[in-house]
Nucleic acid binder design. Sequence first.
DNA 1: GACCTGCTGCGGTTTG
Length: 932
Amino acid sequence: MLDRLDQRLRQLIKEKNWSKLTNIQEMSFEPISNGHNTLIIAPTGYGKTEAALLPILNKMLKEDVKPVTVIYITPLKALINDLLYRIEWWSSRLGFLVNRKHGEVPQKEKNLRLKRIPHIMVTTPEGLEIDLDWASRFREHYKNVRWVIVDEIHELINSKRGTQLAILLERLKNFIGYDFQRIGLSATVNDEKKVAKFLFGSSERKMSIIRLNDSRNFEIRIHKIDHNVPSLWKNAADKINQLIERPTLVFTNSRFSTERLHEELEKLGNKEIYVHHSSVSRDLKNLAEGELRSGNAKAVVCTKTLELGIHVGDIKKVIMLRPPTSVASFLQRLGRSGHLVHGVPKGEIICFYDFDVLEAFALYLSAKNGEIEKPFIDDGLDVVARELVGMILQNQKVGIEEAYNVIHGAFVYRNLEFSKFMELVNYLAKNNIIKIEDDSLKLGQGFFKIWRFNRDIKSGWGKDFSEFFSLINNDETFTLKYNGVTVGEIDAVYVYKHVRSNDVIRISGKFWKVVRINTNKNTIDVTPANEGEGEIPIWKGENTSKSSLMVEYIKKIMRDINEYYLLMNEIMDKNSKESIMKLISEYGKRGLDMPTENVILVENKEDEWIYTVLIDEKVSNTLSHILLYLVTKKYTLNASSRSSIYGFSVKGTPTDLLKEIINMDESKIKKIILKSILRSPVYVATLKEILPSFGKISKVNQSEDKFLIREALRQTIKRYFSIRKTLEFIRKVKEGKIKIVYTENAGPLTEAILAHAQIRPWLFDLNISIYHSLKGGAYTVSELSEILGVSAKSLENKLKQLRRTNGKYKVMSFVDVDSRENRWCLYEDFIEIVKSEEYYSSFAPLNNNEIFVADFKSGDNEVEVLFKPIDLINNPEEILRKIPFSAIEEVKIREAIDTSYQFVQKYYHVGKDVIVYLLLNAVAYLQSLKYS
DNA sequence: GACCTGCTGCGGTTTG
């Protein structure tokens, strides 16, 4: 191939001291030179960038090209910076200009590109979005583009960023009017044809896939440490300390673990060890990366931040603290070591729990078999909506037909029907973010309500316009405040799902008790607390969503454990092997069937039911949501459930609700599934995420926003639930193909289920919940607090608020004379309660002839009325006549002779229709105090 | 419900 390169390029290769090109570079030359759309698949560090670049530069030297000739898209800012120097090395020597664009590039450098138009533009998907939508002058130069390179596609394809980019490429093609050549660079993927189609979209060029697949070539060792000890983290650090070979990357699954392990490693006297995760400042991250590259670092403890493509130098070994949650992630982490010296990637997995060993082994087997998760392409209509507005920004208006054709050209939306597209367009027009004029779309006034253009105004309504270009959703957070001072931050979804009043939260090494959750301001008022009061770690536990591919391999291991005996000796330490053998033999010992996909072990402890079964996490999640829905409907709102690949559980029910589900007909189950998802925290989060793209600012309305609700529901189900597989699961149970076994002790995997955080129902409308809980009865605040799972303090505030209202939700309180407690009930129920046997004594004075005084107040009006209980019974009309207003804000009752005001009973916000009974209640109560 | 990623263009005016 070298002989086909331009002399000037050959000279540069000599200058680089390259004796030959890498395999992948050799293989890519032909198809790229022939103008094919090309997908190049190889691990990081095999020179994929040059594989794409060399044939293009070769063409650029031979043909007459005008800037901008090449757009190079990559998902990370740090990668752009790396690439700029790498590409510039070649291009500057060949007389081509390069420019980069991302949010942190200084304005000066950005401005330069209009004065000296670059041949190669390096940017992010968001950068391209800005250029097409907004950069009115520079955009014109894109008309000369002949090649687009997309780097790290495997990172983009699973998210809305990838979908956004797919549409942007179609928009670019439409804008240029030329079918430019598309080149993709990717790590190992499951479905390479799909990835290729995703990238190539409507392009009519021939396509080629170039692959260098040696991902099965790696060495791994699995270790298990004792987790049932307070020194867990020290044990982990000790183990890791022995295994480190300078330089090592230690991957964890959470920011918390990263910090915690780093602390212990430092205690062991290690100095050249650094931490790297998203909450570490940019400077410290740069330091860690630099020390890694220079070889000064002994190890860096990190999260997924270092899993991505940033060049980190020659890594000797990779250690994973607890197994990652997917094969893809496992391979990416592993691939960070070894390849540069053409050695074999080397990795160690440190396990805490028995099921960690199962998972680690499953990852190993799957990777060795060359199996990896399928890409999950997001086809959200919010992305289409955002791009439609982008197209309008670009040209002030866009033809409906043209817009549809561009969107439809993207592989993701190849099945989007015109009628569905028009539904979207009409909904956007209804929200006034766009307007329809003849056959075209223009910007609507609503656009300026969603997007804020004034850089100086930081607060107020709307989102900053800079966010328009990005589909990455900044997680909504709650700020923790103590006496108005911020003490920390928590993810909103976590709050919706797990945090309730009176819970204790740990943040920044301290414990805080939740006093009030304010969903309008996204704040949580807290007070300091002690550890003993219970704890919810804000780092969300390590309750990850695990790949179904891993579940398949776990089933295999549990079923055919004997086949793996030798292999286990080879790749595991003694502890790991023993723990896995013990876990599996435990079932036989107890005379239990193995919990596979065909056996559910059911264990019941008081009101909690635990169902152990190896299962797709989406099915597990669906089932746990149905169960939660049923418990809240039948028994209590103070319920919770859990879900995992090892099964699911529900708390708050005296009966086995799974049995009940199995006896329902399918259409009813379907209905319940939908209802339970509509109540789920993940649905709330999805709805909030897509609102701005649809131009929605006011409250979502059941009938007006059907389109939006349907879309949010569709996206939520696609991401987190599976209706089809759940129904299939239930059907199999019905048909006896899945066996249910009831047992006192369902064995070791229940631990894995209970390790997951509880899902709790989010009370969308506390008024409704209070109404349903109170209906037909009278409860004390603490009883009601127990029923609803809401703190007594916030509940009392809410009740006092409801007392002031009118209508269905109006409440009131009276004294239960027997227990001397205040009881709350619905206003509409009060007369019934008065007449009930249960509260008879509360409205029956002991002495009907004593004289009492009642002070009625309403606004500025006040009136004092003297009465005897006997009058209330015999002639209530007379008393009522003495009150000159119908709505009583406050009434104070005391014995006429008691001028010390020592015993006073008060009621607030009541009508004249119930006042006679309340006066009787007050008298009965005051007399009971006096005579006792 | 773990982790991660990105984020105004252009042109005119002012200032040391």
